[in-house]
């Protein structure tokens, strides 16, 4: 067993896990954070996307011990007690998601994009979401949700 301590969504969380435990397994089974989903389990679908030290990763391909000592953000940590993140708000308003399975990953991938590039082109949004598959929507409303969230975050929502 290995002791793994992470700062998850701002709080220190520890668990003792076998070394072959993925970060996704630790989050879901040990820390009861089930927002990140187990989809393909080989890094293709992006349903398990979380941010480690601010960078998006497929939690199914990272060992929990590799994240030891680092900051992890999951979808559960995105909203504050006061408000949704703008992406959560626009995704809800536009019904950007249908079944919702891909949503936590999509929203976190979109968040890292907007953190680095506050005013992305549609092509840049597509590139940033290439590792997040959605089998319901056809992506149109997802792209619109990201565009609208960028607008809100840039303080331009009234001009729309």
């Amino acid at each position: 067993m290995t002791d793994v301590t992470l700062t998850v969504n701002g709080k220190e969380r520890s668990a003792s896990v076998p070394p072959e435990t993925t970060l996704l397994e630790m989050l879901r089974s040990k820390l009861n954070l089930t927002g990140a989903k187990l989809g393909c389990d080989v890094g293709d679908c992006g349903a398990c996307t979380v941010l480690v030290a601010g960078k998006s990763v497929n939690a199914c391909l990272m060992l929990a011990v590799q994240a030891n000592g680092r900051d992890v953000l999951t979808i559960e940590g995105l909203a504050t007690a006061e408000a949704f993140h703008p992406l959560q708000k626009t995704f809800e308003e536009l019904a950007s998601l249908q079944c919702g399975f891909c949503g936590p990953g999509i929203i976190l991938s979109a968040k890292t994009l907007l953190d680095e590039n506050p005013d992305p082109t549609v092509q840049e949004i597509k590139d940033a979401l290439a590792g997040n598959l959605c089998r319901c929507t056809g992506y149109t409303k997802i792209l619109e949700g990201v565009v609208d969230a960028a607008r809100i975050m840039n303080g331009k929502q009234d001009a729309a």
């Binding site: 890094g43 992006g46 996307t49 497929n58 991938s109 940033a128 290439a130 590792g131 997040n132």
Partner: peptide, 9 residues
């Protein structure tokens, strides 16, 4: 190479 998540790791 892959997508953002793959390139980050």
């Amino acid at each position: 190479v892959g997508a953002v998540q793959t390139r980050n790791l």
